[in-house]
């Protein structure tokens, strides 16, 4: 039983294939996208929460909105004394009406595909 060369070749191929994403993208990382704000969002200056929180945690926020709205009939979200209707289509997308430039850009960059819009509508002019 002298399978040493076979094993080494096999291992080498495995390592090469396994690390494919790393060496394939070496030195060619795409720059982080700049999101574009709609005029309405620019004018509002501040989102429901501060920008940093929204950037990192908007999915948790939406998760909370969705559970409270659907399951507990708590459809109003109050934060720092301000009230919002907890609705993706009617509140978020009202300001951020530019889904392609706002939502999709980052989602595509980090390669996530949230299925929000399989059901929730977004402003018609964005449909292409």
């Amino acid at each position: 039983m002298n399978d040493k060369p076979k094993i080494i070749i096999g291992l080498a191929i495995f390592v090469a294939v396994f690390t494919f994403p790393i060496w394939y993208n070496r030195g060619a990382a795409a720059p982080a996208p700049e999101v574009k704000l709609s005029e309405k969002a620019k004018a509002a200056k501040q989102c429901v929460r501060d920008t940093d929180y929204m950037r990192k945690e908007h999915m948790q926020l939406l998760d909370g909105w969705r559970d409270r709205t659907v399951r507990d009939a708590m459809r109003v979200y109050e934060v720092n004394g301000k009230e919002y209707v907890a609705s993706l289509s009617n509140t978020c997308m009202d300001c951020h009406s530019n889904k392609a430039d706002f939502c999709d850009k980052c989602h595509n960059y980090v390669s996530v595909d949230p299925y929000c819009w399989n059901c929730h509508t977004y402003p018609k002019e964005e449909k292409k």
Partner: peptide, 21 residues
Amino acid sequence: DVIASAGQTSAEEIYKKGANA
């Protein structure tokens, strides 16, 4: 993860029914 993210939250969050519900 969930607990950590909740820990970062400094804002007062309240969920409630609409006034005319």
